[in-house]
Every structure is written in C-alpha cells, then in structure tokens.
Design a protein around this nucleic acid. Structure first.
Lengths: 150, 150
DNA sequence: TTTTATATTTAATACGACTTGAATATAAAA
DNA sequence: TTTTATATTCAAGTCGTATTAAATATAAAA
C-alpha cells in the first residue's frame, strides 16, 4: 500500500516552499516591497473590499499596524481607501490597477519555476497530474468558509 | 482537451500560497521570528553547512546583512558557527537541534491546512492524487541542480 | 615577501513594521 | 441626549533588516 496522501501532500509542499520562497523574496527586494505589504495585497485581491481591522486580524497584528501599512500602500498608489456608506467608521480598502499588477508580478516571480516542470513529464503523466490537481483545487476551495472561522 | 498542466499548476499554487502564508506569518509573529530568519533556517536545513556569502547570495542581500542576521540566530542558539579548516576565511554555518526544531514547527504551521484535505477526497481520488504528486515531487527534485546556476 | 583578492565582521545610519496609549469620528444603546 | 462601543488614525518609541564604508583575517598571486 502507498504512503498516505497526507504525507505526500506535505512532501510536495516542502518542495514548493523551497522553490517559491526565493523567487518571492527576490521580487520583493528588487521592487522595494516588504513581505507584509505583498501579503496584504495578495489578500486584498482574494477578498476584494475589506476593512482595516479585518485585514489586521488576518495578519495577526494590531489595527494600528495595519492602518500604517495600508497608508504606505495608498501613498504608493497600490491601494485605494473609500468610506463605507453604510457605516462611515469603516474604510473599504481595495486594490488599484497598479496594485493588481504588483500581485500578478509577485505571483509570477514566485511560480516561475513551475514552468520548467511540464517539460519533464510525458503526455500521459501531464494528463494524470492535471486531473489530480484539479481535484485538489476544487476541494480546497471548500475549505475557504471553514477557514474564516478559525 | 483539458487546459494545459502549466495553468493547473499555477492555480494550485495560488491556493497553496493563500492558505500557507497566513499560518506561516502567524507562527513567525507568535514566536518572535522574522520572515528572513525563518527563510535562512529553512535554507540551512536543505543545504547543510554553508558559508555566509553563499547564504547572502541566495537571499539577495549583502554579506554584511547576512552576517548580522546569522549573528542573531547564533545568539538565539538556532545556528552554529564553525571555521572551515580548509580555508579559515570561511565560516561554516549549520543548524543546531533547536534550529531544526524551529524549521519543523514553522513548516507544520504552514501546512496544517493540508491535513483537512484528504478527508474531502474519496479513497480512489486519494490514490490518484498521491500518485500524481509523487511524480511531481520526483521530477521537481531534478530541477535542483539547474536552479543553483540561476 | 609584498600585493591583491576573498570572506567576514563592525560601525554608523536609515527605514519599515511593530507596539501601546491617546485622539477622532461615527454608531448604537441607555 | 448622554454614554458606551466600534473603527480608524496619530504619536512616540523599540526592534530587526538593510545599506555603505571601513576594519580584520586569511589565502593566493606577483
């Protein structure tokens, strides 16, 4: 019997981390973004409009810290601030187009190693792996709501 | 025909990043480690004994910066410094046991979401996905040497 | 052996990301 | 309407990460 899926998943993640981290850190440095900054941009892309405290919670920092970090991103034109008309205490933070661009670039930098991978697989293997990953992606999306509660 | 493997790989990576980054950042914060520190520890585990400049190159920072960062890790007992007997200009940096422990914990924090995944798959799917990932892991390892040259 | 190159550290400095505590503004409750 | 709670920002101060430039130690070359 093969080793459990759980173990294989972890192994694959280790490979992934090793290859991805470097590209990501280098992108950040070369373009003068900090890791927390890119982290927020990435989260904003996924969640859309979002309050300051909400982002602070996700990052595990105080609201003051998040406010400052976002202020810098606003000044760089990567994030927009607008008032929530329903509750004017809230700010609705959203990515600008420039911000979306940065997210896209940083993801690309992080994933460039992936593009060398398909060439190392046969046609049949490619089909097999693609099918498997599609299953994983689909199921992982259902973790989303549960994750919010943690 | 299904979409190319390359695209599926990227999609899967996006999911991965989203779930992993949070656990990682929270672990770092709660345990008072910085992202660069964990990055170095992770790299040291993979590469084994390593010079200061070598690590600096990988991180994309100056040797001075790497030296300082490593000094703090040495003071925290996570990294050991020793002289290279063949060329005493070199320092050979290695993880202590405590350092290895930290790497393991940080990886676990980053991957905890993975453990909720297998339950969402049928037996057959688990088998199918495990096989596919095993292929990916095996082939990705061969990227290693080529990667060093970049 | 003097010179030059390499590997690392130290010093001075700047900057971003945190924190806590106080100030604002708005909303909801008493 | 006064009080209390919530969302965000401002202010002051600490800390880690970077930088450049200079210092140290060792190795290799002239």
């Amino acid at each position: 019997m093969s080793p459990p899926l759980s173990q294989i998943l972890h192994e694959w993640m280790c490979v992934t981390i090793r290859y991805s981290m470097r590209g990501f850190m280098l992108y950040a440095k070369q373009n003068n973004y900090s890791v927390p900054q890119l982290n927020v941009l990435f989260r904003l892309r996924h969640k859309g409009a979002c309050g300051v405290s909400e982002l602070a919670d996700e990052m595990g920092v105080t609201a003051a810290a998040a406010s400052q970090l976002l202020e810098r991103l606003v000044q760089q034109g990567l994030v927009q601030r607008s008032e929530d008309p329903l509750d004017r205490r809230n700010r609705r933070m959203t990515l600008t187009e420039a911000g979306q661009q940065v997210v896209q670039e940083s993801v690309a930098a992080r994933q460039s190693w992936l593009d060398r991978l398909p060439a190392l697989l046969s046609e049949a293997e490619q089909e097999q792996v693609a099918t498997a990953l599609r299953i994983l992606i689909e199921r992982a999306e259902t973790l989303d709501e549960k994750n919010e509660q943690v």
